[in-house]
Write a protein that binds this DNA or RNA. Structure first.
Length: 259
DNA sequence: ATGTCAAAATCCTTTTGA
């Protein structure tokens, strides 16, 4: 089973790119982030024509997450991260898909830091840790998937010394990510490729993609049930070079089916 | 400090978030 994540940076503006990639790579399950569309403007019909059932949690202008499935065997569990009833940002959706609990998330960017946006990121991260602490002990496979807006280590940044004060790399944020991992989660891509430089995002500025000046911020965190079923993974880097593309690349993993 | 991109409001140019 192939599972992918893709921060599309506007699901309608990037729809031709999304459909072209779905056709080419044909993942079984896809998590999307940054839909930048209200619920009524999600392109359900076009995605259905491409062979995918979808559930989504949209919002006007910003944020928005969705889960796509080829089988349509999807049971939504929730569409808000517990812990703050006043949080109106659409950044989380959770569903059982083909026997796996898929948690699609778009963690806040947090810049500029310090400031209220960084405080919101820290609080959101704390809520994610709380939810994850419950999920990691579930007797079913669980994956936390999406744009975490965190580079976990210096290997995940093209020039780490330039990023120490950035909200994506500050010590507090890296510490939060490592605390999350310590609950028992497996960073799938880093586990497959322990020493490899892998980026999932390239800024639109200064020809970052052409210079390979990227960041690894899109992650799959596997619960203990799935650790031994991880077969392969990678980044569809060439998609970042397509016309009218997102600033993120699609990322994917392959999970062995249950025998 | 800079740079790019897309979409909304301030509405055909500027502001915003990333």
């Amino acid at each position: 089973m192939k599972i992918a994540t893709y921060n599309v940076n506007g699901v309608n503006g990037r729809l031709p790119v999304l459909l072209r990639w779905l056709e080419k790579e044909s993942p079984d399950i896809v998590c999307l982030q940054e839909l930048k569309a209200p619920n009524e403007k999600f392109p359900r019909d076009e995605i259905q024509k491409a062979g995918y059932h979808s559930i989504w949690h949209g919002q006007k202008s910003w944020n928005g997450v969705a889960i796509l499935s080829k089988t349509g065997n999807v049971q939504e569990i929730g569409r808000a991260l517990p812990g703050d009833a006043d949080d109106v940002q659409s950044r989380y959706i959770e569903a059982m898909v083909d026997g796996i609990l898929i948690c699609c998330l778009y963690l806040p960017n947090g810049n500029p830091a310090p400031g209220p946006k960084f405080d919101y990121k820290l609080k959101w991260f704390d809520r994610l840790q709380q939810r994850a602490k419950t999920l990691v002990n579930f007797d079913i496979p669980v994956i936390l998937i999406g744009d975490f807006n965190v580079m976990p280590t210096e290997l995940d940044v093209y020039k780490p010394e330039r990023w120490h004060k950035d909200a994506l790399f500050r010590p507090e944020i890296r510490a939060a990510f490592h605390e999350l991992i310590a609950q028992g989660w497996t960073d799938a891509i880093r586990t497959l490729f322990p020493d490899k430089i892998i980026y999932t995002f390239y800024d639109y500025f200064r020809n970052a993609y052409q210079r390979d000046a990227g960041l690894r911020i899109d992650h799959f965190l596997l619960s203990p049930h799935l650790k031994d079923r991880l077969k392969d993974g990678g980044v569809d880097r060439e998609v970042r070079g397509w016309e009218k593309t997102s600033d993120h690349c699609p990322v994917w993993i392959e999970i062995a089916d249950i025998k």
